[in-house]
């Protein structure tokens, strides 16, 4: 028996985070072998592996069969946000999403560091040690790349396009209320969204980027609908499993 029922409020809340980690890790992984230079290839691929590891740890709290749950659930049962479902075959978009996502992810884990659940606390503590590297990496690479004008314009263009999508990370699932009252998490998405915007403002100020950080309210999507990129990802994820769904792969 898993620790939390996936259909409970807390289960839904943890599933949303797990799905985000699973999807971002998978999309980051696309860059293996083709990142801008080899040293960066190794660093970025490591981040992809870490995010998948976080997904595994979180899925493990809500299911006994991680692969069936992570790969073969009905698409309507996923709770990932638009921002991680988007396919980004462009390095600037990928780099900016990495910075935005990890800035947010770090805050999300911090909110779990004092969880009422000892299991959640343990996972958060471990994830935070990896996250500090992710945030450092993202901030360093963005800050170094905006020092030339051409690259600065490329990064600013990505940031302006992606910032509104990034707000979907703070769309809360209905189960968040239960996660808060039970103390499994200690901060609401609304509170975290404010910290997120402030962290981004600090970064753009430090780097001298003239981009106003305004997060439009994301509405009550509850993460119930999938981005149009999701279907291809879902099919690609199941390509092998579909050959023999009952086999041990």
């Amino acid at each position: 028996m898993p620790l939390f029922d996936a259909s409970s409020g807390v289960g839904e809340f943890l599933t949303a985070f797990a799905d985000d980690e699973h999807l971002i890790g998978s999309h980051h992984a696309w860059w293996i072998g083709i990142a801008p230079f080899l040293e960066e290839d190794l660093a970025f691929c490591s981040i992809a592996q870490d995010e998948l590891g976080h997904a595994l740890a979180l899925y493990d709290l809500v299911t006994d069969d991680i692969d069936q749950f992570a790969l073969r659930r009905d698409r309507s049962a996923y709770r990932s946000c638009d921002f991680v479902e988007m396919v980004m075959p462009d390095w600037a978009d990928t780099l900016v999403r990495h910075w935005l996502y990890d800035t947010a992810e770090h805050l999300r884990w911090e909110a779990l560091a004092d969880s009422s659940s000892v299991e959640v606390r343990g996972i958060a503590a471990r994830a935070l040690t990896e996250e500090s590297f992710h945030v450092k990496h993202a901030r360093l690479m963005v800050s170094r790349s905006v020092q030339s004008e051409q690259a600065r314009n490329i990064v600013i263009d990505s940031l302006q396009r992606l910032l509104p999508h990034s707000a979907t990370m703070w769309a809360s699932v209905a189960g968040e209320a239960e996660a808060l009252t039970s103390g499994v998490t200690t901060m609401s998405s609304e509170q975290l969204a404010e910290q997120y915007a402030q962290a981004l403002r600090n970064d753009v100020n430090e780097w001298g980027l003239d981009v106003p950080i305004v997060l439009e309210p994301t509405g009550q999507s509850h993460r119930l609908e999938r981005h149009h990129d999701f279907d291809d990802f879902y099919a690609s994820l199941n390509l092998v499993m579909d050959l023999d769904p009952t086999a041990n792969w």
């Binding site: 040293e39 190794l42 660093a43 490591s46 450092k136 990496h137 360093l140």
Partner: peptide
């Protein structure tokens, strides 16, 4: 590009 970047990249290399 610089020492900070080298330190960051060294672990995965």
């Amino acid at each position: 590009a610089d020492r900070e970047m080298a330190l960051l990249l060294a672990r995965e290399c």
